[in-house]
Simulated scan of single mutants.
Amino acid sequence: MNVGFIGTGSMGTILIESLIQSGALEPDQVVATNRTFNKVQRLASQYPGLHAVTSIEETVKASSIVFLCVKPLEYKKVVEEISAHDRADLILVSITSPVLIHHLEHQLTCKIAKIIPSITNYVWSGASICIYGSRIQTEDRLLLEQLMMSISRPIQIEEQYTRITSDISSCGPAFIAFFVQKWVDEAVLETGINRDEAARLASEMLIGTGKLLTEGGLSLEQLQQRVAVPGGITAEALRLLNEKLDGVFQQLIHVTHAKYEEDLDKVSTLFGNIEVNLNRRQY
């Protein structure tokens, strides 16, 4: 089985490297193309056997599964090229949230899925969000999830929740890193602690917290209760955070959803204003 990649930007490269490094794919099972060909050539030099090709046609013809890893506004042009080599047994996987299953099924006859990865997949961790089109069969779903299971925990969702799940799984690492960066910066300013030491402590704390919430079986609420002794330092700090962060996450969700809807409108226009009966407020 060959797996193709159209687009080897940041996320396309992360998927290729993590799938190879995890052993899910051998380099000679990977076929990749990119508008800037030297990016694919660099990957081929790092992973001998990887097939660097110059066209979408070559990628589609040589692959059983093709991951489409381009920007939303590039999809229409790429899909038009794919349509010339479309076939019923091909599985096309979009990794971009504003491009809907309906957009792609309207243009192509192949099997369509959407899998939204996370930067955490690079270290074979985190989730991958899975959404399946009407032509995906049980064996196709199992094939895709087996592939992604080597670098993530595949979680199937309904497409109407694409945006909010992407906020948590894909954008979340950046949000958490921003929070920790601000915390570390202030710790350095207020106390003079070495920045690298503080950052290392915070990073180890994140790893341990994640394990407590997964392997340790604690819920978010239980973890807070176990650490925060009534009347203690942690409890006082949590009170402050609760007060100061009131409304922040509601605003964050509104901002990400507004941007998503803007992108969705642009993509829908490119695809001919295809009507989509999804409740946008739940994205």
Rank of each mutant, 00 (worst) to 15 (best):
L218Y: 15
I112W: 11
N273V: 08
L147A: 03
F175E: 09
C69L: 08
L278V: 08
L206Y: 06
Q181F: 05
F5G: 01
I91V: 14
I116S: 03
N121R: 03
P154N: 05
Y161R: 07
M148C: 01
E139D: 08
E236F: 09
Y132N: 05
I112T: 06
D196R: 14
E186T: 09
P48M: 01
V229I: 15
V276P: 11
R153C: 00
H106T: 15
W124G: 00
F67Q: 07
T120E: 09
L25C: 05
H106D: 15
E197F: 07
V3G: 01
L220D: 13
G12F: 04
S64R: 13
Q225E: 15
A44V: 01
C110Q: 12
V30Q: 00
L142M: 06
G12W: 01
I6E: 01
S150P: 04
Y260I: 03
K77A: 14
I101A: 04
G7Y: 02
A237G: 13
I136K: 02
G12Q: 00
R281C: 03
P72R: 13
K259F: 05
A187H: 07
V70A: 04
L245Y: 10
E58M: 09
L108A: 08
G192R: 06
R87K: 14
R200T: 15
L245D: 10
A198V: 04
C171Q: 02
G49V: 02
V93S: 06
A187E: 09
R239F: 12
I95E: 09
S18C: 01
N242R: 15
Y47A: 02
K76L: 14
I233N: 13
A202I: 05
I65G: 06
